[in-house]
């Protein structure tokens, strides 16, 4: 469903051109669980932003569901992000003045969906992530794990096909980190395509497929033999 062809992404830094992505060719099928690993500056976040259509390639083509999305207009891009892609960030990025429920509701609001339908979906999402009692709380009143759960609920509220996670456990303690990983993997088992950037080897080993990046290139792309029981 995701197909990248000869993708380059260059940044101008001073009078130097940095190749953040250098000739990336990649295909990811529906329902895969992919981890992207590599040192800082290897281009893994850039790759994720590009798949999430927050960033645009300098050259090359990106097909999402067999559709070339490289040349779409800004409005259509926004619609695709809204309906097909969910983001989970290391820093959670919740809107501080909005309650947990209102944060989760945001993508539906931006899509202009009727309040009654929104309320039903949001309460369902709160329930499935065990956040019902926290619905009215502001982010500052929530623990890190709870905040990331709210962020996951928000990312999945429009039932996207792809969930992009950039260091989802980076700001969490180990226990909450495990909880968050369990939730993400459960979502993956129900069919969502999960692409996760991490530099934590133990997390990378949990995924079915792991991609290693160095200097903007894909260094290795392996299928892991995994046994969840032993890792977690």
């Amino acid at each position: 469903m995701i197909k990248l062809q000869k993708i380059h992404r260059n940044f101008q830094v001073g009078d130097q051109i940095v190749h953040a992505l250098d000739d990336i060719n990649l295909e990811i099928a529906q329902g895969e669980y992919v981890s992207v690993m590599g040192p800082s500056g290897s281009g893994k976040s850039t790759l994720l932003n590009l798949i999430g259509m927050l960033d645009h390639p300098s050259s090359g083509e990106y097909y999402l569901n067999d559709k070339n999305v490289t040349e779409l207009g800004e409005v259509e891009e926004a619609q695709i992000r809204n309906k097909n892609i969910g983001f989970v960030f290391q820093a959670f990025h919740l809107v501080p003045r909005l309650s947990a429920a209102e944060n989760i509701e945001l993508p539906l609001m931006l899509a202009g969906i009727e309040p009654s339908i929104r309320d039903a979906k949001v309460s369902l999402a709160l329930e499935s992530l065990n956040l019902t009692e926290r619905a009215r709380h502001k982010p500052e009143q929530l623990s890190g794990g709870q905040r990331q759960r709210v962020a996951i609920a928000r990312a999945t509220i429009t039932e996207p096909a792809v969930l992009l996670a950039d260091e989802p456990t980076g700001n969490l303690d180990q226990k909450s980190g495990h909880d968050v990983m369990d939730i993400l993997e459960a979502l993956n088992q129900r069919g969502i395509t999960l692409i996760m950037v991490t530099h934590d080897q133990s997390l990378g080993d949990r995924s079915a497929r792991s991609i290693k990046m160095i200097d903007g290139r894909i260094e290795s792309d392996n299928l892991n033999k995994i046994d969840h029981a032993t890792v977690s």
């Binding site: 999430g52 927050l54 800004e74 409005v75 926004a78 619609q79 992000r81 809204n82 309906k83 983001f87 820093a91 990025h93 809107v95 945001l106 993508p107 931006l110 899509a111 928000r154 429009t158």
Partner: peptide, 16 residues
């Protein structure tokens, strides 16, 4: 900026 970037990631267009 973070909030506005987030709104974009969640699917807000320029016009929005």
């Amino acid at each position: 900026t973070a909030e506005i970037g987030l709104l974009k990631a969640l699917g807000a267009s320029h016009k929005g």
